[in-house]
Design a protein around this nucleic acid. Structure first.
Lengths: 145, 145
DNA sequence: GTCCACCCTCGAGGCGACTTGAAGTCAAGG
DNA sequence: CCTTGACTTCAAGTCGCCTCGAGGGTGGAC
């Protein structure tokens, strides 16, 4: 048992091990290393070869979560961070990203809603074979029974 | 040019080559072979080693499309076809599938709508750095500028 | 006979976001 | 000293859904 590596309870200082970060952020340590490897997270300070993070990293991970939920790829998120670090106004980047993503996202939602419609119809289906079933017929309004 | 293999114009008989099927279904021949390889499509008759399809296959492909749009995986679709062929009422299968898929789909749509919200807010963002930006703050209602 | 379009099989590759495994390092507790 | 447990690196594997390429075959038109 190593005190400095303990994943439970707060460390004496603010420096977090990767295990602590992972636990608090609800991710695996491997994904944090992965983010670092592709440049989404910056390389943290190291003590005896081991990563030590300030509390900032939790916010950065939350940003990543938020942006992923916004449909951005890790590559886009990396660019966002890079821009932020180099002083490019983040707003401009975000606007550009949003303009690219929104139509895609709208299309995704539209498809998903069509799917939901289909599945709802499917859940009332009484058909015996696929051949009879209007659900799977092209260009036929869906309703079954 | 080979008459029997011609992809343009209808064949003299109803038997379609894989190329014709692909063209009419708007898919690549490779995906049709793939469906066959994983059991989603049955093995068609062969003439001189080449697949010949009846017109039914177009409907089957349309079913696959519809079911994929409904969020079913190819494995689930295969099971559906299998059930249909073996006489299990398709309705039961579909209901079971729908019950499994609908909550997932609802969650997907909810996430996507949250994302859309986020992106819409992002498109009006004026922030200079990520650190200031309320968009990326956890648990803060999104609005920017 | 030659050419060409189309077909065949089989294995590999590619996407995105990770996860897993092997082999090794480090610091503290007993 | 030895064990323990978290950490390290790097390569490879996973998932679903295909796509592509190599190498070879078939059959009709000229």
């Amino acid at each position: 048992m190593a005190a400095g590596n303990d994943t439970s309870g707060p460390s004496p200082d603010q420096r977090l091990s990767i295990g602590e970060v992972a636990q608090r952020a609800g991710r695996r340590a491997s994904s944090i290393r992965y983010y670092e490897s592709i440049g989404v997270l910056p390389q943290p300070e190291r003590i005896a070869g081991q990563r030590r993070y300030g509390p900032d990293v939790l916010r950065q991970l939350a940003v990543i979560d938020a942006a992923q939920r916004g449909g951005l790829s890790l590559e886009q998120i990396r660019d966002l961070f890079t821009a932020s670090r180099t002083g490019t106004p983040v707003g401009d980047q975000l606007r550009a990203l949003a303009e690219r993503q929104l139509p895609e996202l709208d299309a995704l939602i539209a498809r998903a809603e069509t799917s939901r419609h289909w599945l709802r119809a499917a859940s009332t289906c009484q058909c015996l074979t696929l051949d009879d079933c209007p659900l799977v017929a092209p260009d036929v309004p869906w309703h079954c029974s």
